[in-house]
Design a protein around this nucleic acid. Structure first.
Lengths: 145, 145
DNA sequence: CCAGTTGCTTGACGATCTCAAGCATCAACG
DNA sequence: CGTTGATGCTTGAGATCGTCAAGCAACTGG
């Protein structure tokens, strides 16, 4: 009954991965927009588990430091983020999410309905399998970029 | 030997999917940049299997039609794309990739090294499994957005 | 103390994005 | 027909995002 189910070409798999990445990004962007955030602002906010220096944000977001200045400016103007001096290096400014910032990004995560309902389509075993496969892709994808 | 390998929470899976989507997008953007294209220009070019009306591009890219005008303007100025009148509706302009445009986007696809080497880490069975799982995610993710 | 490096900001400029407004064309109805 | 409304595309204004070059402050290693 289960002969070989015609293995996908690398190109097909690549296209599917790209399509899903795009769809998830749209879901994220649309959800963030409902909270008055651009997708980049939401992405930055999502990095703030603790205090992070501007330079660190630029590295994570893979962009110029001067770009981070503007994004943090706008988030700070809305009270979602705060700049704190670094006690051990006076050049550094650490960015911290305010309570409102934390709450906002938590809501965005919770309200990504398309993504949530997609993952609900899988049972626990399937999620485990998917997780293990994706974990194998991670190192190559992140280090060669 | 293979007890339950601690099933990932939905949040963990979600984070992993997001991280991989981002990494692949970076790979795509960096590769496109080597050919003098922005990521958005490359993405638009990737849609052109045949003639596509401006409106259709706006739908696929999930953005305003006026935005497409500018992107196509720049691609056209570089000879990667052409605007053709639609024979059955004089309002419509169909966008077609020139030979150079086709060749350029083909190269971008071929040269996404991070993505290719990541997929090479999987054998054929694993790719089949991954493909089937991702296909199940697709409908929910794309339609609810 | 001095030279070089690093962290952040500013300013200039281009690309992306949305919205409102405008023009041309189509489609439908009387 | 001809008017009315919807549709496709472009233009212009204004905000955000992104880079680069330049500048200032502060750290680091002699």
């Amino acid at each position: 009954m289960t002969g070989t189910p015609s293995p996908p070409t690398k190109a097909q798999l690549l296209e599917l991965v790209a399509a899903l990445g795009t769809a998830q990004w749209q879901d994220f962007a649309a959800t963030a927009a409902r909270h008055g955030l651009t997708s980049v602002q939401a992405k930055l906010l999502a990095q703030l588990k603790g205090p992070v220096p501007m330079r660190g944000l630029a590295t994570v977001l893979v962009c110029d430091a001067s770009n981070v200045t503007g994004i943090v400016d706008r988030l700070e103007a809305r009270g979602l983020v705060r700049r704190e001096p670094d006690p051990s290096d006076r050049r550094v400014k650490n960015v911290v999410a305010t309570e409102e910032g934390v709450e906002t990004i938590r809501r965005v995560r919770d309200e990504m309905q398309a993504t949530h309902s997609a993952l609900d389509a899988l049972d626990e075993d399937e999620r485990s399998t998917l997780y293990r496969l994706l974990e194998r892709l991670r190192p190559d994808l992140e280090h060669r970029a």
